[in-house]
Design a protein around this nucleic acid. Sequence first.
DNA 1: GTATCTCATTGATCCAGATCAAGGAGCGCC
DNA 2: GGCGCTCCTTGATCTGGATCAATGAGATAC
Lengths: 233, 233
Amino acid sequence: MHTCTDAFDCFVSRVLPKRTGPETVRLFRTLGSHVHLKPDRHLHYPDDEPTLVFLCDGATKLVAHASDHREQVLAFHFTGDLLTLPAHGAHSYTLEALVDCDLMTFPYAQFLQAAEKHQQVLTQLLERSTVSLQRSREKTLTLGRKSALERVSSFLLSMAERIGRGEGSEVKLDLPMSRKDIADSLGLTIETVSRQFTLLRDQGLIRTQGRSGVTLLRVDELDRRAGHLRVAA
Amino acid sequence: MHTCTDAFDCFVSRVLPKRTGPETVRLFRTLGSHVHLKPDRHLHYPDDEPTLVFLCDGATKLVAHASDHREQVLAFHFTGDLLTLPAHGAHSYTLEALVDCDLMTFPYAQFLQAAEKHQQVLTQLLERSTVSLQRSREKTLTLGRKSALERVSSFLLSMAERIGRGEGSEVKLDLPMSRKDIADSLGLTIETVSRQFTLLRDQGLIRTQGRSGVTLLRVDELDRRAGHLRVAA
DNA sequence: GTATCTCATTGATCCAGATCAAGGAGCGCC
DNA sequence: GGCGCTCCTTGATCTGGATCAATGAGATAC
């Protein structure tokens, strides 16, 4: 994935409905911009109007900035995700690349206008927005009421769902984010996250390979550690 | 607001576009159910499919339940709000009335189908969903990175925005939720919330009248306490 | 291959907010 | 209008995770 055309084609095939007319495709093309981001770089976008982003390839984090230099990671995104960057309000937001990323950006208002005649696009936007809201609510519960161990377990399970490769009863993960990113996402410190990893490793629930490799060995036990509701035993 | 007809009319006038045809209105009527909830009662809804709720009148809280009996308030809603109750996943959710409430409920999937021909309804659904997501993200930052005092200040400011009555430079609030609800919303305990109220009162930033009355005396100072980004000084 | 630099782990101490424990005040009920 | 109950406030103590402080291990550059 390198050229602007590739990126746009990727957007077309994954977001627009199958038999979208060529004139509509052309309309979206005039609205969208292709951006390549290197790791640790953040997307520059107008802070007074929301922007729609389609992540063609890569992984990003959405970060909220409070006063001081405190940061909270609101969400991680992976290849194929569609997300809305809010205009800055009481806090400011940035989208930062975790690895090399290709994305398409659209001014939200104009995109919406273009989509109005194609309710399948609207429906999809709504659907994806609902999934984001759902994830955000789970995060709220995690941050509001869970212990460090529960947070880290929840995090691993959620990553397993999104980027895990199942191998028998195990799930392999290649985490694109650093311990700092995980800590900022879970409302913890690097040290605490590291200690929970060690704890889970010592209990035989996970194995780690290098900085980014994690294998979940006992998903059932992790579910219990995560404080999830017992599925009727 | 008491009869089923009143409630549905309220929904029609606040959610459906102005010149919606009578046959469409009739369609939505067949999908919707009117429910009255007394304080502390919760809405019963199928746990395997999402439900759309329009709050005609009253105030509610959306609560997530983790294992043990820990609860996290995900959001408060007030008259005129439209919200989506997710199907239960790793956690379960309930919608509970804070005061007497009238609401209209719709099966989400069927509502969406009915709305497909009316992209104004879709657009509105999307818009409201985006606002919910935005609020949820602010909450994430609050729960992840803010101190008790910052959380309570943020909470008061957010309530001021939604249900405050401005009187000169002051804002009057009549909070429909208990200290317990506030604590469960901010990831704190009742005691800590109470102590922050006392602190803010002692600093002359708020005045309290009885259990539910709060007057914000210094919105600017509260903004500072809330850890909001300084508006270019 | 190895030097170096960054990121992760581990250990020691500290503190904000939880927990435990009484009082006090508002509000509904009779 | 006062009785009683619930919710709120205040105080004392405890603790999980933050902070401070070294190591240790992976990745990158040469």
